[in-house]
Design a protein around this nucleic acid. Structure first.
Lengths: 224, 224
DNA sequence: GTCAAATCACGTCAAAATCACGTCAAGAAG
DNA sequence: CTTCTTGACGTGATTTTGACGTGATTTGAC
């Protein structure tokens, strides 16, 4: 089991990580929302432990954003906010469980196990004629499956999660080549390949280039 | 949504039922374990609210029995027993959530909604011609038992639990070698062995490779 | 201000390099 | 003995690279 711990209190974090590892649970660690974002979108966790008071923003917002963007991993909120309204806000933005500080480690582990083993049924995201299944890593257009390469899927799913926002070129490149951006501009080729599969065979085009900015995936105005 | 409320305090029960119905949640009612048993085995509930102190026995035992007998409805325990050990016992026997009395109705509803949407972790599972017995660590295909190695079982059961999701290669490897991922790619060999037993002797193939992503086990489109 | 040249961002394509995977067999570990 | 690991090989898919064309945008001299 692999969990992501998002917690800015380093001492507490260290204790949690240590305890989880004793219990055979592997643990990635983020101490800010920014760090958490890049972790969440780069791999799938069996669960995310989310503190709500973070230096660079509110955990509630982050959780809502993740759920809106079809992040599958279940989220357990870990916080000192103990009011009923606080809890309800947590569940409102998609939390799978809510544990109040101070808490007992064994209870955290018990709840982690429950939410990790019983995942929510995968939801499908529809954008026009496109239908995304993030859990199955598949896309369909008008019922037909689009056979994408690994890179093609990565690009398209990022754009879908952000749709109809425009995603900056650089961000797409960071997703594809996290270590070092390529000297040449091979993203162009990938977009070409992607378009050939996603848009070319169909009437309407969903992949758009915003010159000088980046890329976006959205329903064409004329179609809507 | 249909829930089963198991609670011997009639006044509290009436309040809960009333509140749930306000929220559009249908509610069956049992005031003893005996009544609960007959309800649980006669229909499938989206969730079961289970009080632990009942006139004819302990809720913990009932819960354990249900889970042992593959009742898939999630159970939320509702009790005055607030000790850590009580909670752990609850999760131990398969509870999906644990709420301490006194509680706020809106929180109960929020938690009900979360657990009702989750996919259950069954002990028996059928996927096409395959039949899994997770407790007994056995698989049958068309009635014949498949004799798997320890590793083979681990891989296949993970894929089955997640079916029809695609499980990332890395996650399968983490399951097999929790400590350190192997330098060489021996998962390929295991898949080869596994396919020889699971798929090769039969017409339809269930094990699929999603190139660049991972593996999945599912009923082929053409078969359905 | 305006016009043309230079520059830039992008689409297109194909060849080459690389990678992921299925297959198998021999050896190691239990 | 069975099971697991390793490594080698072949194949086809994927990714990268670089070259070329086009139209937009900037630049700078007039």
């Amino acid at each position: 089991m692999l969990v992501l711990l998002v917690e800015d209190n380093r001492l507490l974090a260290k204790n949690i990580i240590h305890y989880l590892e004793l219990k055979g649970i592997e643990c990635d660690y983020a101490e800010s929302i920014m760090q958490a974002d890049s972790a969440v979108f780069s791999r799938i966790f069996d669960a995310i432990i989310l503190d709500l008071n973070l230096p660079d923003g509110d955990g509630l917002e982050a959780c809502k954003r993740w759920k809106d963007q079809c992040v599958i991993s279940p989220v357990i909120m870990l916080t000192a906010r103990s009011g009923l309204q606080d809890k309800l806000s947590g569940f409102e933005v998609g939390a799978d469980d809510y544990l109040i500080k101070p808490f007992a480690m064994p209870e955290l582990v018990a709840r982690l196990k429950v939410i990790a083993e019983r995942r929510p049924a995968p939801k499908l995201l529809k954008i026009g004629e496109l239908e995304f299944d993030f859990a199955g890593h598949r896309v369909h257009r008008l019922g037909e499956e689009l056979l994408l390469s690994r890179t093609g899927w990565k690009i398209l799913s990022l754009l879908a999660r952000r749709s109809p926002e425009t995603v900056e070129r650089e961000e797409v490149e960071r997703l594809l080549w996290p270590d070092c951006l390529p000297d040449s501009d091979s993203l162009r080729s990938h977009m070409h390949l992607l378009r050939k599969i996603v848009d070319k065979p169909y009437k309407h085009h969903y992949l758009h280039t915003v010159r000088g900015i980046g890329l976006c995936l959205k329903v064409a105005a004329c179609e809507a």
